[in-house]
Design a protein around this nucleic acid. Sequence first.
DNA 1: CGCAGTCATGTCAGCGCAGTCATACTGAAA
DNA 2: TTTCAGTATGACTGCGCTGACATGACTGCG
Lengths: 416, 416
Amino acid sequence: MARLAGRGTGTAPRSIDVARLAGVSQKTVSRVMNGEQYVSGDLRRRVLEAAETLGYRLNHAARALASGRTRSIGVVTLGTALYGPASLLMGLERAVRDTGYTLRVVNTVEGDALGIAGAVDSLLDQGVDGIVISEPIDEEGDADLAIRVDVPFLILGAPPPFTAHRVVTAGLVAHQLARAVTEHLLDLGHPTVHHLAGPQRWYAARDRMEGWRATLAAHGRREPPVLVGDWSAASGHRAGLELAGDRDVTAVFAANDDMAIGLIRALLETGRRVPEDVSVVGLDDIPVAAYVSPPLTTVRQPFDATAEDGLRRLVHAIENPDADPIPAEDPPVNLVVRASTGPPPSGAVSVGGAVLAGGTAAPEGRARTTRTTRTTAPGASDGPSQVPAPQPNRTTAPGRLVSPGRTPSGARQPTA
Amino acid sequence: MARLAGRGTGTAPRSIDVARLAGVSQKTVSRVMNGEQYVSGDLRRRVLEAAETLGYRLNHAARALASGRTRSIGVVTLGTALYGPASLLMGLERAVRDTGYTLRVVNTVEGDALGIAGAVDSLLDQGVDGIVISEPIDEEGDADLAIRVDVPFLILGAPPPFTAHRVVTAGLVAHQLARAVTEHLLDLGHPTVHHLAGPQRWYAARDRMEGWRATLAAHGRREPPVLVGDWSAASGHRAGLELAGDRDVTAVFAANDDMAIGLIRALLETGRRVPEDVSVVGLDDIPVAAYVSPPLTTVRQPFDATAEDGLRRLVHAIENPDADPIPAEDPPVNLVVRASTGPPPSGAVSVGGAVLAGGTAAPEGRARTTRTTRTTAPGASDGPSQVPAPQPNRTTAPGRLVSPGRTPSGARQPTA
DNA sequence: CGCAGTCATGTCAGCGCAGTCATACTGAAA
DNA sequence: TTTCAGTATGACTGCGCTGACATGACTGCG
């Protein structure tokens, strides 16, 4: 077969061309390119120089064929689960940069032909050395998928059962996040907290609900019936219409920010004030959360920390097949208090705590850090729902005020 | 070298194993796997059966090495430009499914070490047959990047100059989208429309601004000074604080929805009502746009249509290096009228049109389709800003009302 | 001084597939 | 019948790299 046209004109240089130019063996070029030890500084320099001269690029297909490793990690995303400016996917992308691996992302939407299993299959087909998967893995089928498959798995948000060989997990703090927001509401004096949960097939949904439930139990509060949404603002809106008629509802914890936004919208439409009549918290701290009206109290997902920790441990599992897995680190929990929460209206009675001034009093704007030393959200918001200035919405990646022409990573950008 | 352990136990089957089992040559297996012609139905069946029996998976690295083609397409994303539930990236993912190609995504954030050029480089390094890139390509350096590189390029949102060999473009409708929202505001009777633009290095930003400018000119309206943001809600908020003092401002077109949301928030904080005092439109129709208060009038980005059209033409360019490029299709333009726009306050005078009833009158809720026969947004919103029920927010992909347990693709989902 | 251990480099084969070319068989046109 | 274009299959080779192994140079130590 004739040599293939490579990049640029003619033919791509190969390692043997570099070797000849540098006056070394092809193997030495290979060693240099792979950063192996046992190459003298002199030869290393000559090889790199020759490679530079020729514009040499290592052929990854050939390397994969020869070595049996692709140096790529597959990621299965579910709908938009991993997407967004602050997301695990972006965290993974950042984390993967220095590892020598690249990411291969396959997106799956619930209900489409390609399921999770199909996505995993497609990744294995393409050849990946490891797979990252997030919610949901339904318990029967997909659980042993991870175990059956012969590459290491990183399962984000999976519970303890998934501690099989070469399976690592990360991000098991959802119920801690839920606890933080629930306790925030109880601290404000609400008798109890209603919950708008996510789809129950998702671990994240169940985990958040468990955190809420456990917190209520720990405080000896009554547990109201749970509403279930589908993570979308639309489903939050529907839930809000259901709750709006019930005057006992003074505080609602929505399992994510989108549902919280839809829920608030429904409350406002039905004439209930937020937070004077009903306090609402979300979970995630999406970029617009600080700018909706009222600005949303929420708890930030530790995307970057979780992604980085998880990826590091996955790579470890890939490169040390027989070693013990590295234990997961506990990511930080950052509550961001904005203007969608406040004390309950005067009529409401707190079982365990003092009843605070009801009505129009606004929350002290304050970001609190739980179980971590990181501080957050320096700019605080206060006042009634229409008035407060939103605080910068990403503060661990500090809300740098951006001049025209610069674009912070938190911004949603246009596309065509 | 010893055979490598493959998937499952032991060793992965190779095409030669399939060949032996089926009693044919390796080449015939190759032909079947690649869907080539000139294989009898009988042999094809035997081969597929044998492959099934052995659990054969084609080794993509070996194929890439032998054929010189990787069957993968690289995508460069900029910050979150391509992300999100409704996004070009998801459109590309859907579109790529049946092409036999896979996507390799490299994300870049403005200001990080990896620039666009670095991302392209990294993709070429990994070996891709084509590259998709979106905004921005800055005019000097990156322009000829596309041309210098030896694989076909799809540039999303690029203007006509980029019609070099093997470069195709798509999504050149930004100024039509801008025109749609600007005309909507003028139709309501506003004397003129202010503009909050995106960063001027982005084609999308300039294109949107041009659409706005041309529309004003066509209607003989004064062109107010332009504000510039960075696509983020935070920058929209800052712009809103600047505009709030100016009583001449009755209508603002923000170049994307996030900035519009931040802008509305700033107006509300400073005591201006939306839309009674100021009408605000965005651009994109992000999922929460229907649920913020007031629900946002915007124009939908034709993500799927653009992605599909662009990808189809890129694949054509890859597979037919010498053929003429397929011309781009004009994607639809869908204006979604919600509650953030209305007639100007009584004092304001429209130069070219009748002055409509000012103050609290609300817009007729209606989704309008421009330059296309597709209908959109059946549910309409009306009434003052706090009251209207939001309409389902994705209507071309119809806003199916979702029961618990199902998750529509428009929902933002949790991650751990 | 001899030998083991470490470091530095090279030789060679083959990873699994698809391209090229050869070959054989079919049916219709000459 | 011969010819020829089209159809169907196989033999062989090499894509560019890295693993296994060989080998030599050097070091330190008894």
